[in-house]
């Protein structure tokens, strides 16, 4: 598992490679909190290269989304495969996040 961070305009893009689970969720959280500290208010998490996500991973995304909204920002998601989409639908988190099919589509109206 690894995370890569890049910027497109004022949007910080975090790509999750591998699993987002209990053993590494804090690393993702810290990376995004560091970006918030630097003043970033728009974060896009790209799951194109993600395997699976467990409840801890989902919980971190919820926690970060709440924090970002409190700070006047937004956290959005892109590139969920069918299995990840199902996971978000099962937990109704698809109603909480703005989810785009592709990174480009997410960036178009961010």
């Amino acid at each position: 598992m690894s995370f890569s961070v890049s910027n497109r305009g004022d949007v910080c893009i975090v790509e999750v490679e591998g699993q987002l689970i209990v053993g590494n969720r804090q690393e993702l959280k810290q990376k995004i909190l560091d970006e918030l500290e630097k003043g970033t208010r728009k974060v896009l998490v790209d799951f194109a290269r993600t395997g699976y996500i467990d409840s801890s991973g989902l919980g971190v995304l919820v926690s970060l989304a709440k924090k970002m909204r409190e700070m006047g920002g937004d956290l959005r998601l892109a590139n969920l495969n069918d299995d990840l989409q199902t996971l978000f639908e099962l937990t109704k988190l698809d109603t909480l996040f703005q989810i785009s099919e592709t990174r480009e589509r997410a960036l178009e109206n961010f």
Binding site: D54, S55, S56, K66, L87, K92, L96
Partner: peptide
Amino acid sequence: DPTTPENLLREDGRGLFLMRR
């Protein structure tokens, strides 16, 4: 049930639900 409005924004509470689903 993590899908109820009062639970949706919780960070925890999805593990057993997912296991059973």
